[in-house]
């Protein structure tokens, strides 16, 4: 499974970012290979409009299965995510990436 997180930093200990399209980074954890890939979202973040769909596209193109985020994606981004089978979990706010991952594993995060 590939699990994506919206984050403020580049590590497991970094804080989760509640926003989706305008997140600072996207971390993608590949459970099978135990690797963490980091995407700097500086480009989409600077878009005046349409940041959400751009990030959604990154997730789909990288074969992500699960998205863990804070507030949840907006309407346009959801429309893009619907084109895939990505499961979206929200509510990962004011916690580290590691904590968010553990909560997801323990089924403590709500499905968006």
């Amino acid at each position: 499974m590939k699990i994506a997180f919206t984050t403020k930093g580049r590590e497991w200990q970094s804080e989760m970012e509640p926003r989706f399209g305008r997140t600072d980074y996207i971390l993608i954890y590949d459970e099978d290979k135990d690797t963490l890939i980091i995407f700097d979202n500086c480009e989409a973040k600077s878009h005046e409009h349409g940041a959400g769909p751009t990030v959604a596209k990154i997730l789909i193109e990288n074969g992500v299965n699960v998205l863990i985020t804070g507030n949840g994606p907006g309407g346009n981004a959801i429309e893009v995510l619907k084109k895939s089978s990505i499961e979206v979990y929200s509510g990962a706010i004011e916690m580290s990436v590691k904590e968010a991952y553990d909560k997801y594993k323990n089924k403590k995060l709500p499905r968006f």
Binding site: H47, H49, G50, P53, T54, K57, E61, E79, V80, K83
Partner: peptide, 12 residues
């Protein structure tokens, strides 16, 4: 305006 997105052989 990022009003179009190409994804999996589809233009949204």
């Amino acid at each position: 305006y990022h009003a179009l997105l190409g994804i999996a052989n589809e233009i949204l």
